[in-house]
Design a binder for these strands. Structure first.
Length: 417
RNA sequence: GUGGCCAUAGUUCAGUUGGUUAGAAUGCCAGGUUGUGGCCCUGGAGGUCGUGGGUUCAAGUCCCACUGGCCACCCCA
């Protein structure tokens, strides 16, 4: 084979595209009900935007970005996540000046150069939303509730919501130091990866999946016990709102997200239907991000969800299997002289809003019938000299297998019923 | 970036201790009397066995490298 899609990228083909379209429409419907409007940002940005927002020391910036220089020697990067671009756009377009709370959502491809595996691609798709402008816990609760609503709407139930608070610039540094001191004591026993993190990002050590690390750090102090008054009270409110909304959750004091910009609330939705990459969605509050990117200090909260992972769960549960569109009618030509008329009639029916199909391969009548069946057309009509004479079609219902004669003039009307 | 498993028709797979023209199922195409699909029957097309080396009289089968896929680590959506 001469050309193949790039490693870690996938063609999404029919009939799977039908499923994608359906899920997209569910996502949009939910977001619109929560009054979020769509925002579309470019798929690439200045590299420094991501470096500044996501964090120089994160894995994403450190080793996963698709970065290249263009002909002007500018360093550009295919977006690895959505929030940075949205905040950049929010600042650039002064969206906060027109209204104090900006609620936007996106559905977009993202790019990260990692080794592909189950639930992980190099080009993947995320849907996500951001509520920019509110520092209050109600906004956190709304975002979390909306995330979950998407899965509810799709009749998915096997997920777990984990929440945590990662503190703010006032309380986190103090906690980090205490944790660091404790971690240094057991450093030699930890995995090399965790050892490296003790100095760079100690909270990530607790979020390690390594079982030995988890065991060794089981009695480490958790951030939840070191939150400042403001963070602690915010976290309590988020939890209480979630409870009153009937959303069950577990507090996971070890949960840290892979992006540096999070403050206070962090959350993650995982599914037991997935493999090792089990996060369906994740999000959190980022009260310092806007000012970090050169805008006015503006609090915000958002989330992003993996489209492919959601599709994996849907497929595994056998949901949404018959969404492909089928023609309402297939017009078959009984002889060569009728072909041109059949094509005209097909076009005419289409102009009346009817999904009509016909033969384009000069096939035998038998083959045309087979095609009509394969396409799962609701009706088929065979047109030849006889029909043209009578100016009427024999409309055959392929489902219930009956036939009725319909004047050509009435075809569109009858099929619209 | 590291590791394990894998790579044969469009697809899912079989292929004996290396041994003639590489098979099945399914899908595709055509036909089963001249204008009727689904089931059934018959026939047909379709593979430089991932690529490149090597061992051998002989390689789909053994060895090496590369590429790609799947899964896991790492990390995350």
């Amino acid at each position: 084979m001469t050309f193949k899609s790039i490693r870690g990228t996938k063609d999404i083909l029919p009939p799977e595209t039908a499923r994608w379209q359906h899920v997209e429409s569910v996502v949009r419907a939910v977001f619109h009900r929560y009054n979020y409007k769509e925002i579309r940002t470019p798929i690439f940005e200045q590299t420094s935007l991501f470096a500044r927002s996501i964090g120089e020391l994160t894995d994403i910036v450190g080793k996963e970005m698709y970065t290249f220089t263009d002909r002007s020697d500018d360093s550009l990067t295919l977006k690895p996540e959505g929030t940075a671009s949205v905040i950049r756009s929010f600042i650039q377009n002064n969206l906060g000046e027109a209204q104090p709370l900006v609620k936007v959502y996106y559905i977009s491809p993202m790019f990260r150069q990692e080794r592909p595996q189950a639930g992980r691609l190099r080009q993947f798709h995320q849907f996500g939303a951001e509520a920019i402008g509110s520092p209050f816990a109600e906004a956190d609760a709304e975002i979390i509730a909306m995330t979950i609503e998407v899965y509810r709407q799709l009749s998915l139930t096997n997920y777990a919501l984990k929440i945590n608070s990662v503190g703010c610039e006032k309380c986190r540094p103090r906690y980090k130091e205490i944790l660091q001191t404790e971690l240094r004591k057991i450093a030699p026993q930890l995995s090399p990866e965790s050892q490296r993190r003790i100095e760079q990002n100690p909270m990530r050590v607790l979020d390690s999946k390594n079982e030995d690390d988890l065991r060794l750090t089981s009695s480490m102090p958790l951030i939840t016990n070191y939150l400042c008054e403001e963070c602690s009270s915010h976290f309590e409110k988020v939890k209480s709102f979630l409870s009153s909304l009937g959303i069950s959750y577990v507090v996971d004091g070890r949960l840290v997200r892979g992006l540096d910009y999070y403050t206070k609330t962090a959350f993650e939705l995982t599914s037991s239907e997935l493999g090792s990459q089990d996060a369906l969605a994740g999000g959190g509050r980022y009260d310092l991000l806007a000012q970090e990117l050169g805008g006015k200090p503006t609090p915000g909260i958002g989330f992003a969800a993996g489209f492919e992972r959601l599709m994996m769960v849907i497929e595994k549960k056998g949901l949404l299997n018959d969404l492909d569109v089928h023609p309402t009618i297939f017009l078959a030509a009984a002889d060569e002289t009728s072909r041109s008329w059949v094509l005209e009639k097909t076009m005419e029916l289409r102009s009346h809003g009817i999904a009509a199909e016909t033969d384009f391969l000069h096939r035998s009548l038998k083959a045309q019938m087979r095609e009509a069946d394969r396409q799962r057309a609701a009706f088929v009509t065979v047109v030849g000299a006889e029909e043209l004479n009578k100016q009427a079609a024999v409309l055959k219902n392929l489902r219930v297998k009956n036939e009725r004669e319909v004047p050509f003039a009435d075809l569109a009307k009858v099929l619209s019923e």
